[in-house]
């Protein structure tokens, strides 16, 4: 039983990171109706930015208590990657407004490959150790359960960011504009919404969340490389589809479901004849199943094409 609870908790931590990345997919899909393939790579850049900042300001940061330095690094990396997301949209996606979706999809693949291979050129292809921004010491080990400080912080940060995002989307003018744009881009322009600004903001916000996800992920699995974003990125996308793409609570829910299922397969699969290595493919099996049985996802709405 303890072992089961432990697995469930591990899945929860893993899933909360998927949830953070999934939010970016879902928001961008909500306003622009396309899959930003490069999102997983911003996740990777988030981790590398944190690594860079930690190296550059190591002595100064070392003198602070770890929660302060963590928050500083987290916020700075989120800001940098947010800006990067805005630049990516401006250079690669904006010229393609109103072009066929396939062209935008191809561009997104191009952007993704470009970021990965450029990062490989600069950082090398080998794994790099990630600094211990959060102490990896166990915080509690009662009744056979072990939870590390890092895991607690990951969950707390994710919940904070989720609540923050919810407030931005539901309570601010910008959030209102985002919702208007996702319902009807033409009408929102007519109502005085500057769509370009809203789209930039959405990309910035999504990329900042992905960067946070990258740092948290690297804190749990402390070795990073230029292609580390691909797998979590794809799984987070599946999470977004599972929850209902375009739907923010759905993305969070989807992330948790994927994280927990994956951990359970890893932990218990062999009792049912499923090798633990298959956990890598769980997300994609889930994806195919949803698309067959409920393409709109758990919380999503079906869209009709206007004829």
């Amino acid at each position: 039983m303890e072992q089961f609870l432990q697995q469930l908790l591990n899945g929860l931590f893993q899933g909360s990171i998927y949830a953070l990345i999934a939010l970016g997919y879902t928001m961008v899909y909500g306003v622009l109706r396309f899959i930003n393939f490069a999102h997983g790579d911003v996740f990777m850049l988030g981790a590398f930015t944190a690594l860079g900042l930690h190296k550059a300001f190591g002595p100064a940061l070392a003198s602070m208590p770890w929660p302060v330095s963590l928050i500083l690094i987290l916020l700075a990396s989120m800001a940098i990657c947010g800006a990067l997301g805005i630049i990516i949209e401006l250079l690669a996606y904006r010229p393609l407004r109103n072009r066929p979706r396939l062209n935008v999809l191809i561009t997104a693949i191009g952007v993704s490959l470009f970021i990965e291979y450029t990062a490989q050129l600069f950082f090398g292809a080998t794994q790099r150790p990630f600094p211990e921004l959060i102490p990896r010491t166990p915080v509690a080990s009662t009744g056979g359960l072990t939870i590390s400080v890092a895991q607690v912080i990951v969950l707390a940060t994710t919940i904070t960011l989720l609540i923050g995002l919810r407030i931005v989307v539901m309570k601010t003018r910008m959030g209102l504009a985002m919702r208007a744009l996702s319902l009807n881009p033409t009408a929102s322009t007519l109502m005085g919404v500057n769509n370009s600004v809203v789209i930039s903001f959405t990309f910035g916000l999504g990329s900042a969340l992905a960067a946070a996800g990258g740092i948290l992920y690297a804190s749990l699995y402390p070795s990073i490389e230029p292609f580390m974003g691909i797998q979590p990125g794809l799984k987070a996308f599946v999470a977004a589809v599972l929850g209902g793409i375009g739907n923010i609570p759905g993305a969070a829910l989807g992330g948790l479901i994927i994280g927990i299922t994956e951990t359970l397969v890893k932990g218990y699969g062999q009792h049912f004849g499923i090798p633990s290595g298959y956990s890598e493919a769980v997300a994609f099996v889930i994806l195919i199943l949803i698309l067959v049985f409920k393409p709109s996802g758990i919380l999503g709405k079906t869209e009709r094409e206007k004829v």
Partner: peptide
Amino acid sequence: SLLLIVMM
């Protein structure tokens, strides 16, 4: 990858 982006 750059070629893909520019071409689109």
